[in-house]
């Protein structure tokens, strides 16, 4: 079989199964491999499968496969991330978002602040504060978030957004006085 043909077969086959492969399988390594063997394994797979070296007709498939290989290396090259991934892998998780490896609280606040309120009272002011932020009414946002904090003093997401709002309010060019409205 010519080298070209072998490559074509390999890319076509891998493309069919790539979604079911875990990071170790993508790098052709055992789950208990030494940390130092990860980088050389990635280099070998890169030479074999990088889309730049793929036949023109297979560029898109090679790109899809190599994106997964790149992701495998990104996670496994950091010993800490690898350890966390090993734990997830035992529970049948084969691919992870980078963000999934960050702490839970950071994630929820970054992705969905509107769910941060824990009580009904705080929620009302919190959501008003968020819509103020949306509309760039920063002074009003500061007030609303402070109200929300009255009900939930320990809420880290509130505190984080209060800082954001205060900073934004300070930096915002002082336009005409924006009267603060209380809506109940």
């Amino acid at each position: 079989m010519s080298q070209e043909l072998r490559k074509t077969v390999r890319i076509n086959t891998l493309y069919e199964i790539v979604d079911d492969l875990d990071y170790y399988q993508l790098l052709k390594q055992k789950t208990n491999c030494k940390q130092s063997s990860i980088a050389p394994a990635f280099q070998l797979q890169s030479k074999a499968l990088h889309p730049d070296n793929a036949p023109s007709a297979l560029k898109d498939k090679a790109n899809y496969i190599f994106t997964a290989i790149n992701e495998a290396f990104r996670i496994l090259k950091e010993p800490q991330n690898r350890l966390e991934y090993d734990g997830l892998l035992k529970n049948g998780v084969i691919r992870v978002e980078d963000t999934a490896l960050r702490s839970g609280s950071e994630r929820s606040s970054a992705n969905d602040p509107s769910k941060a309120a824990q009580t009904e009272q705080s929620k009302k002011y919190w959501l008003m504060g968020l819509s103020d932020m949306d509309a760039e009414r920063y002074d009003s946002a500061v007030m609303n978030i402070k109200f929300a904090l009255q009900f939930e003093r320990e809420n880290e997401v509130f505190q984080e957004w209060l800082e954001k709002a205060q900073k934004a309010a300070q930096e915002a060019p002082k336009k005409e006085k924006n009267p603060f409205k209380i809506r109940l």
Partner: peptide
């Protein structure tokens, strides 16, 4: 400084 090719995603929710 993320190596390419790359694919990453995040989930967002409606805000109103």
């Amino acid at each position: 400084n993320t190596s390419i090719p790359v694919e990453q995603s995040q989930i967002f929710t409606t805000t109103r």
